[in-house]
Each structure stands twice: as C-alpha cells, then as structure tokens.
Write a protein that binds this DNA or RNA. Structure first.
Length: 132
DNA sequence: GCATTGACGAAGG
DNA sequence: CCCTTCGCCAATG
C-alpha cells in the first residue's frame, strides 16, 4: 500500500467567478468534470478549465489533478492530458507506464506517450456538458 | 513573507 | 515554423 503524499485538498474555493459557486472548491469542480469523462475518451486541462470558466488557469487544473490521486472517489486522471494530447502527467502516476496502460485498456491508442487520434476521442466538457 | 516551481496554454519573436 | 515569454493561482522552499 503506497502512502499517499497528503491530499492537500484546499478547503477554500479558488478564484472562481462568484456565479460559479456551484462547487465549494475549484478542485472539486475539476474532479467532478474529470469523473464525467466517458470511457475511451480524453480531455485536456484547458478544456476543463474553460468549462469552469478559468481557462486562463489551466495550470491549476493540472495542480488539482495532482491531488486527484489522493481524493475519493478516484479520479480518472489518466484521461486528462494536455492540449497536445501528450501524456504529460504520466510521470506523476505510480509508474510511468501506468497512464498509457490505462488508456490502452480503454481502447485508446497511445503512441510514443501521445494519444493517437486525440482529436477524435477528445471530449470537450464545454460541448458535451451543457451549462444549466 | 518573498521567490521559485508546476500534470497548461496562448501569444510573440 | 520553432523557441521563448507571459499569464494564471496555489503550494512549497
């Protein structure tokens, strides 16, 4: 059992626009969207950030993902890659190959640490998920 | 408390 | 077209 390096889950909401008070914290929103990613599909940090209205803070999404492995329920962080479709976060998994392996298990082809047909399986929360 | 970094992204040179 | 810089916000040193 590997010890999780502390969730460091922020108790406070980040600088989300007040109208987006749907979640208590920015991280929570990120996890929620990430869990909504259909199997065999992937999305990018920027897409999630854009859905949350903080597209300029795409880095925060990545940071949230870092803590994602410590939250519950587990977040399929392996389905989240950068805008390039590269497995930028694979190095943060238990093993460098875990992320690619998980993606392959879902039918996603990974070539040279990059998702094949990234644009085809790209899942954009802004498009797929309609604002209430 | 200030400086640096970070699973990003868009813009500028 | 490739490389560099800025922005964003939070965490860590």
């Amino acid at each position: 059992m590997k010890r999780i390096p502390k969730p460091s889950v922020p108790k406070r909401a980040v600088t989300i626009p007040a109208k987006e008070k749907r979640k208590d914290s920015f991280f929570e929103s990120v996890y929620d969207v990430a869990r909504l990613i259909p199997k065999g599909r992937v999305t990018s940090f920027g897409a999630i950030a854009a859905y949350l209205g903080t597209k300029l803070s795409a880095r925060m999404v990545g940071w949230a993902m870092n803590a994602a492995g410590a939250v519950y329920p587990p977040v399929p962080a392996h389905r989240v890659v950068n805008r390039n479709g590269m497995l930028s976060g694979r190095h943060h998994f238990a093993t460098p190959t875990l992320m690619a392996d998980l993606l392959k298990s879902e039918g996603i082809k990974v070539k040279n640490d990059t998702i094949v047909n990234f644009e085809k399986i790209f899942w954009d929360p802004v498009k797929e998920l309609e604002p209430e």
